[in-house]
Simulated assay, not measured.
Amino acid sequence: MDVLVGVALGLLGLWLLLLVGLLLVRPKGKALAQAVRLLPDVLRLVTRLARDPRLPRSARVRLWLLLTYLALPFDLVPDFIPVLGYADDAILASWVLRSVIRAVEPDVIAEHWPGTPEGLSVVRRLTRT
């Protein structure tokens, strides 16, 4: 019984550390608002890239795992928690996109981007590519 309590407290402590980490790295100010506005275009981009055989297999796997995580009804941080609820999704998507965009030619990304050129430049800025 003591072991179960210890494991539960350890998991709770790790989850609280995750919350603090997300709070520290979340997009600030306008960046979060821009990310939310671009969400439909980003989801279409991720889906199109995940189906493109020109991408390395590891990049496509990361994209499919991201889509699966976003589709699941539960998250690491529940969406009802203000700011952080959606920030974990935005941070994870940004991290995966950043790694994929760095592994793929810029013209492939531009080819699959469904939005405006300004939107693509915002995505590049948010993913720091």
Rank of each mutant, 00 (worst) to 15 (best):
T68A: 14
D2A: 12
V104W: 02
L49D: 03
L11F: 08
R124M: 06
L18D: 04
P53E: 06
E111W: 02
V104P: 11
F80Y: 07
K30P: 07
K28I: 07
P40L: 04
L9Q: 06
R37D: 08
V36T: 10
R44G: 04
L18Q: 09
G85S: 07
L67T: 00
K28W: 14
G29K: 13
G85W: 04
G6L: 00
L65A: 08
R98I: 02
Q34M: 03
R62G: 00
D79Q: 11
T129F: 07
D52E: 06
D41E: 08
R57C: 05
R102Y: 10
L16V: 10
L9C: 08
V3N: 00
W15F: 10
R124I: 03
H112Y: 02
G115E: 03
R62F: 02
A71E: 12
R60A: 00
L18I: 11
L66C: 15
K28P: 09
R26M: 05
L32Y: 10
D52N: 11
V36Q: 12
L43M: 12
I101V: 14
P78F: 05
Q34H: 08
L76I: 10
P56E: 14
W15P: 03
L22A: 15
D88Q: 13
L16K: 00
Y69E: 13
A103I: 07
A35C: 06
Q34I: 07
L76M: 10
L76K: 14
M1C: 09
L11I: 13
A87T: 15
G115Y: 01
A103M: 11
